[in-house]
């Protein structure tokens, strides 16, 4: 990077540089989101989900992933988007996230999988600030591809920070 670039550009590029790479994009309600491809283990069809009582509503339940039982989080519910009927495009993206020492394998339920995009550094911007009304802590940044905006998700934050603790709190309280 040219040392003479302005400060503003430098930070912007730094974000872009850090986040540039391949993203799996998917649709949730009207918005498109991107997931870092390296976090994605696989995409599976919607299958019968066993509800786990006394867990928060955004935990749809658990499924059998080739002999392993993994939880499925309903991303609509998590983001407070009004629920909808499952369609044949509804599917589960299985993600691997690391919390401390353990590898957490979790399914996230989304409306539709789109494509894998390579997003260049110059097309990535920092998460905008909307004020207090919109939570941006789950957002890594915004990717612009062909005039469309993809919200790049910090899936670790989505599923761990408040999640794990609230899961436990909910079951005990």
């Amino acid at each position: 990077m040219d040392a003479t670039t302005t400060v503003g550009n430098a930070t912007e590029n730094a974000v872009g540089q850090r986040l540039a790479g391949k993203y799996l994009t998917f649709r949730l309600a009207a918005e498109e989101y991107g997931l870092e491809i390296l976090k994605v283990q696989e995409i599976i069809q919607l299958q019968s989900i066993t509800r786990v009582p006394r867990t928060p509503s955004y935990v749809r339940g658990v499924i059998n992933l080739r002999g392993k039982v993994i939880p499925v989080v309903d991303l609509r519910s998590k983001f407070n988007i009004e629920p909808t009927e499952d369609t044949e495009k509804t599917c589960i993206i299985v993600v691997q996230i690391r919390t401390g020492e353990t590898l957490l394998v979790t399914g996230i339920l989304i409306d539709e999988v789109r494509e894998v995009l390579d997003i260049q550094a110059e097309n990535i911007e920092d998460a905008p600030t909307f004020g207090a009304s919109v939570e941006t802590e789950f957002i890594l940044g915004m990717g612009k591809v062909n005039g469309q905006v993809k919200i790049l998700l910090d899936i670790d934050r989505v599923l761990t920070d408040s999640e794990a603790s609230s899961l436990r709190a909910a079951t005990i309280g």
């Binding site: 066993t50 009582p53 006394r54 935990v59 658990v62 039982v69 957490l104 079951t171």
Partner: peptide, 25 residues
């Protein structure tokens, strides 16, 4: 089977996969 990491349900010890492939707690 253990319930997936991250699901900590007080009243469940684990899960089992039934003959039809679904999960029961």
């Amino acid at each position: 089977k253990t319930l997936g990491a991250g699901v900590d349900a007080a009243a469940m010890t684990g899960a089992a996969i039934m003959n039809d492939g679904t999960v029961s707690l």
